[in-house]
Write a protein that binds this DNA or RNA. Structure first.
Lengths: 136, 136
DNA sequence: CTGGATCCCAATAGATACTG
DNA sequence: CAGTATCTATTGGGATCCAG
């Protein structure tokens, strides 16, 4: 953790919230992979462990980046959906994707995950926002 | 660390390199604050500790995001400058700054650090790139 | 001296087993 | 299903140390 005093730097502020190896992967699942359940996040390719997933979901909810709600179809399940603050992270994720697309020999080639990223960034963002405004 | 197997996801790829609380702060110092020495990074507001700074500089050099060179003015010192791969992280940092500007009550107000960010993103990026191409 | 790195130890993150 | 508990590994703070 950064030294207690909050630093008044916008980069430090952001990194204090999502500057780790897992948080943005959960957002990726939600925003780009249409996942919304704890178990779906658990079984993503990177295999996050249960305590980390629980912790990050809690942080994200506390930061009001995600909203946790009981699943109407199954009272035992919860769904996680992005808030406006969460949707506003789309450009951060897209900037990372573009950087990796340029500098990672593995991801530079077209991949399933990247198909929807062939559109311009603002079209991608608009589509995702539309999806969540329709079903929330 | 993400589970050993590299995941072929561009977001995971990026996060494996700069998904922590310190790496992008060093890049910030270099790209936006004109810092280039170990000691300058050490004394930034967030007070990174010496072992972390040494480790991150090593990682960044190993990833060819920074280039370490002997300082021509002082044989004992080293300077760190961004490579093209490092300059390509400017949009990631700017996306984080924009998100924080919108969602952090502290950084939303204009601040010294943010002055140069009042220009459009591509003008900011162009200016920084120009600065480094002139002096490398 | 002084810039940079290493070492020791505490704190935090993470993997796996287990539980309400 | 969705976590907690426990144990291990990694990160980080601060002192110290080494090279020039």
């Amino acid at each position: 953790m950064l030294n207690k005093h909050s630093t008044h730097c916008p980069i430090a502020f952001g990194l204090n919230i999502f500057g780790d190896r897992w948080t943005l992967l959960i957002l990726r699942d939600i925003l780009f992979q249409d996942k919304k359940y704890y178990n779906e996040f658990l079984h993503s390719e990177e295999e996050i462990s249960t305590n980390i997933l629980a912790d990050r979901l809690e942080q994200l909810e506390a930061q009001r980046i995600l909203k946790k709600s009981p699943d109407p179809l199954n009272r035992k399940r919860f769904t996680y959906a992005p808030t406006t603050k969460g949707l506003d992270l789309i450009p951060v994720i897209l900037a990372i994707v573009r950087w990796s697309g340029k500098h990672d020999p593995e991801t530079a080639a077209p991949r399933p995950f990247l198909r929807k990223l062939e559109k311009p960034a603002n079209a991608i963002e608009r589509d995702i926002r539309r999806k969540f405004s329709l079903r929330t």
